[in-house]
Amino acid sequence: MNGDQSHRHGHGHGHGHGLPAGGPRRPLAIVLAISTAILAVEVVGALLSGSLALLADAGHLLTDVAGLALALVAAVLAGRPATDTRTWGYRRAEVLAAAAQAAVLLAVGGFVLAEGVRRLLEPPAVASGLMVVFGAIGLAGNAVSIAVLSRVRGGNLNIRAALLEVVNDALGAGAVLAAAVVIAYTGWTRADAVASLLIGAMIVPRTWRLLRETVDVLMEATPKGVDLAAVRAHILALAGVREVHDLHASSVASDLPVLTAHVVVDDGCFRDGQLPVLLDRLQQCLAGHFDVAHSTFQFEPAGHATHEHPTHR
């Protein structure tokens, strides 16, 4: 790189991309073990009691176990260092895992809603006493899992996906208990189907939002909280800046937004040594106002636009 190029290109540096030491692996492993145990208990309970609500919660837990296993693997991969062939390491693994979990949960939610409607029309006999026992076990286990995941600070999409699933499970266990009480005291067996429909209604909307967020990351949409119009205005407000173009913002992972831009500056900035100062100001502005710690800037003189490729204007 010659002297002119070294002044024309400024870029962020010193930004680590790894997970904090330990990361979310230990809490994910604990919750995975708890969910696996609850799954086994609820399958037995659903078979013994004939409850669709327990079966729905067990089906949801089955996806949780698979999803949490994916999340744990993703957490391990995300902690691996960057290489020349994978310059961001495996940071996007948590997004892929969250997307897979959300897609499976949507399918489960659809099944539960359809089966709930069928049983609402033709309610089978249900053993309410067994529903209470197994529902209480599920609720207690989910409460422990929620406590474990809630202690993880700055949770990424992976942790949020896992917490969302466990919270949904806890709400499902609560619905099972409520249905069991209604059946025990009134004999209205359709309460089991109603509880199943409530579980499905809790699964689908929240999961849809999570899926949209993961798709946004994969499609490199502008991160939430980063207003590109405001970013452009802040850059143009700096002394010496004439124009900004090729302004792009995306996310490598849920907690790693990145931004790039071509910044046209006064010709004098290339002669008086102002580019390093301007670069510091730009990066401090982005980190302070928009919480974007990783940014890359290309500085250009005004005449550069005349021979730049049209796609970069």
Rank of each mutant, 00 (worst) to 15 (best):
L77C: 14
R190L: 09
V194C: 09
S196F: 07
C285F: 00
H60V: 03
Y185W: 14
A100F: 09
A46Q: 06
V181W: 04
A180V: 05
T63R: 04
L157E: 02
L282A: 01
A175G: 12
G174K: 10
L197I: 15
P276W: 13
A93D: 11
G135H: 14
L61K: 09
P24S: 07
F299R: 03
N142W: 06
P276K: 07
A305Y: 10
V166N: 08
V112E: 06
N156E: 07
V41F: 09
R242D: 02
A53H: 01
S128Y: 03
E94Y: 04
A69I: 01
M131G: 08
Q274E: 13
W188F: 13
G109E: 07
T311W: 08
A195K: 14
H312L: 14
S51G: 03
L52P: 03
S51F: 04
T311H: 09
A93F: 14
L106P: 02
T311A: 10
V215N: 03
L210H: 12
A180E: 02
V104N: 05
D57W: 08
F299M: 04
G155P: 06
Q298S: 05
A293K: 12
P124Q: 07
D280R: 15
G240W: 06
L52S: 05
D246E: 06
Q101G: 13
V263G: 00
P24V: 02
T306G: 01
R86C: 01
L238H: 10
Y90L: 00
G200M: 13
G79S: 15
E122N: 10
G273K: 03
D246S: 13
R153P: 02
G10M: 07
V167C: 02
D169C: 13
A53T: 11
V108E: 11
D64N: 11
A75W: 04
D216A: 11
S6F: 13
